[in-house]
């Protein structure tokens, strides 16, 4: 009897462990972290976060209109944001996510782009956002830090 009660207790604990601390629409893997990292902390020293699994929270300010394969989260630093990228088709963020609060768990990745690659990348981004692109804004090689998302919860 004691073993059954112990087993049931373990099962309840396991089930509770799978419950996300956040409510809303879930995408990808269930969230395992509950303490968010401030985006401003990542901005201060992004290279120290590369490869680390973290949770970030913020307002969704942009969503990939074509494939739903990325979104931008507002930073806690004024005028700043961070890009969240997913593997195409694995997670598809809806356009209705704009303006909602999202909790995203993933790994910070570093992408080094040559000037030519940076031009192509920024031009592609501008095209997706439907905004004009000024090639003069890209000067030299660039390093981009973004969150490769594994799972997300977007509040309703």
């Amino acid at each position: 009897m004691r073993q059954i009660i112990f087993g049931a207790f373990v099962l309840v604990l396991l089930a509770a462990g799978n419950l996300s601390a956040f409510e809303g629409d879930s995408f990808g893997l269930p969230l395992t972290l509950s303490e968010p990292t401030m985006v401003s902390e990542i901005e201060k020293s992004p290279e120290s976060f590369v490869g680390k699994r973290i949770l970030i929270t913020g307002t969704v300010v942009e969503v990939c209109a074509k494939r739903g394969c990325w979104l931008d989260l507002a930073s806690d630093t004024p005028f700043k944001k961070i890009q969240v990228k997913v593997t195409d088709g694995v997670i598809v963020f809806p356009m209705s996510a704009r303006g909602r609060t999202a909790h995203v768990e993933g790994v910070i990745e570093e992408i080094k782009l040559s000037e030519k690659e940076a031009l192509e990348y920024r031009s592609h981004q501008a095209e997706e956002k439907g905004v004009p692109f000024d090639p003069a804004a890209v000067k030299g090689p660039q390093t981009i830090y973004r969150l490769k998302a594994l799972g997300a919860v977007i509040e309703k």
Binding site: V61, F79, R98, G99
Partner: peptide, 12 residues
């Protein structure tokens, strides 16, 4: 839903 300032001259 919300608002955001992408830069000092723009409000979303």
């Amino acid at each position: 839903k919300n608002s955001f300032w992408p830069d000092p001259d723009t409000l979303q």
